[in-house]
Nucleic acid binder design. Sequence first.
DNA 1: GCGACAG
DNA 2: ATCTTGTCGC
Length: 230
Amino acid sequence: MGITGVPAGWPADEETALDVQRELRERLVLDEEGPAAGEGHVTGLDVAYDDERDLVAAAAVVLDAGTLEVVERATAVGRVSFPYVPGLLAFREIPTVLAALDALAADPGLLVCDGYGLAHPRRFGLASHLGVLTGRPAIGVAKNPFTFAYDRPGPDRGDFAPLRADGEEVGRALRTRSGVKPVFVSVGHRISLDNACAHTLALTPRYRIPETTRHADALCRRALQEARAA
DNA sequence: GCGACAG
DNA sequence: ATCTTGTCGC
């Protein structure tokens, strides 16, 4: 396994990235229910950075949606492809994430991203971008509210409050653990918001953060450490 | 113009 | 994201 280079033609400046975002947005599919929660595979994706050494490590962990047991794991190490710019996170994370996904032999099923999908300034966050590029159903589960305002959801697991933008529900602040800060769920591609929330609850039997993300987070950090040593 | 701002 | 020990609580 070598180091994945930044793809030829990958946007290098914000203006170009915004153009690409606008183009890909047209391919977003929002009229599908998506796979049922608890069935098939769910794949967690996450990325760790070392900007000092210009290194990025991504992890993809496939789980059995019913048992939440690990089916397969893959990692990829690459070069930083874009600076962090709120609203353009996908351009920073996607090249290496795609490399990790390509290394999988199993069917990824639903892609679970660490970030947003439709709940995005231009309705095309990381989860939507990755969904369109792979053609797969995808959801975004973020740990922070980004720029969206929301009413405090009820105190129990399963309670939620809409994330609104221009009067429309672009996502939900969903309580995955009673009495604990909610997570922020939004549709990425080819799935409904209700179903995205059902999947998120199915993935959080014990912790606030989905099992998919927890596995991917631990794995990409380990991969980054190994890349530093090499 | 000044902050806020997924990871 | 990342820099970072101990510590309170179930």
